[in-house]
Design a protein around this nucleic acid. Structure first.
Lengths: 227, 227
DNA sequence: ATTATCTAACTAACCAGTTAATTAAGGAGT
DNA sequence: ACTCCTTAATTAACTGGTTAGTTAGATAAT
């Protein structure tokens, strides 16, 4: 009775990190579904089974909470992806491994794409504060790392001479778009595009697309490629 | 003095279609920048230099106005793109012409991508009403048309045997993503990704990606491609 | 008793949508 | 050509529901 865990109903001092985490989790869900402008703090509090004032106890305001959500999203992705980018692998394998890892991370966190895309779109409204941080802290470094792999592959003659600044965004778009538009896809096909089978098919298609668009065709060194 | 045109300041009966059009134009801008939830009817009215009540005179409510904006966006794209899809051309030329036309339309209407993407993301909140219409009226038919071109090209042996349901979204994502993320790109590179030169570079890159990912490599019929 | 955690109830601002009045043009009668 | 009426176009000012954020206090662990 003295310790804890006898009260399933958290009184006034149920473990604090649990409350904080519940708020964050609920916020991820709400921001993903409704966007920054559409998200309601009351809804977040209700989902987290917590009084609304507690949001403001742990987070300065709605915008700060949103920032924390963004950090969680990007930190997770970055961690997953950097691990494989640090490995010592030939360019072909490395780029496919990176793409596959990025894909898998998103596939296992289906709430994240709308949050990321929502933030991308906030960037056009000057006051945004978060975008700048996200870009500097997560985006630019990631772009740089992947670009290096591309350059290495091009230098080795394994990749077609693409511009990394064009190719990396294209690659990422092919990974992310499917999940962003999954609801629309469901509407068109009737079946669930997020089912494991469909996701596996998409994964294969993405890697195939990247391979075909990037890898130098099998011919070793003919005269000149057609135009 | 009796006719019109002597009063630049619209009294109470300046040409009505002009007011309606001004509202729609302002709404496109506001919805593009702020999203459905973030858009403010007062802001639209202010931008259109019109009293807010006039929005409700011409459009039932905010959501109806949003629907009108969506229709304007998709009708324009559909018209531009269908024209080229109707032409009698070999698959390679047709698919590149389609992609180029789609790209050009978006490039010349930079406010549209955020609106489209915003609507895609609304689809996950069940009540949306618009999405269903948009998908049925514009999206599914377009996907079908482009898929036909792909199938023709595959049958003719000109294209790799891709799944149209995977490839078309990938293609569209490579076209659209650049414009969606232009603000972030500007942040990373410092220069303006929407300048005519940069857009031209992107256009070339997109068509190159599509060609490389889709077209059967020059070799006629070797044994087996390297898995 | 002090401090960290938590809540019910409140407030101030905001914002979609309404109302009732105003303005001008077209016509109908004279 | 002049008054009166009707109707389309337009607005200033208001309303009521919603929502971000606050306050003052409660609860328990130390």
């Amino acid at each position: 009775m003295k310790a804890a865990s006898s009260k399933p109903r958290l009184g006034s001092r149920g473990r604090p990190e649990a409350s904080r985490a519940a708020i964050l989790r609920a916020a991820v869900c709400e921001f993903a579904r409704e966007g920054v402008a559409g998200a309601r703090t009351d809804a977040i509090a209700r989902t987290a089974r917590v009084n609304k004032a507690l949001l403001y106890y742990y987070f300065k305001d709605k915008d700060t909470l949103y920032g924390a959500v963004l950090d969680q999203v990007f930190a997770g992705l970055t961690e997953a992806v950097y691990e494989v980018l640090a490995r010592d692998l030939p360019p072909r394998e490395k780029i496919l491994l990176y793409a596959g890892t990025h894909f898998d991370y998103i596939a296992s966190h289906p709430l994240y794409p709308p949050i990321v895309q929502g933030e991308m779109m906030n960037a056009r409204r000057s006051r945004s504060k978060h975008v700048e941080r996200i870009v500097g802290q997560y985006f630019s470094p990631l772009l740089g790392r992947v670009a290096e792999v591309l350059k290495a592959g091009i230098a080795a003659g394994e990749f077609r001479p693409v511009d990394p600044l064009q190719f990396v965004p294209t690659m990422i778009s092919s990974i992310v778009f499917y999940f962003l538009n999954a609801p629309v896809m469901r509407m068109m096909t009737g079946s669930d595009p997020l089912s494991p089978e469909r996701v596996a098919v998409r994964r294969a298609a993405v890697l195939d697309f990247i391979s075909a668009a990037l890898f130098q065709p099998a011919v070793q060194k003919p005269q000149g490629v057609q135009k």
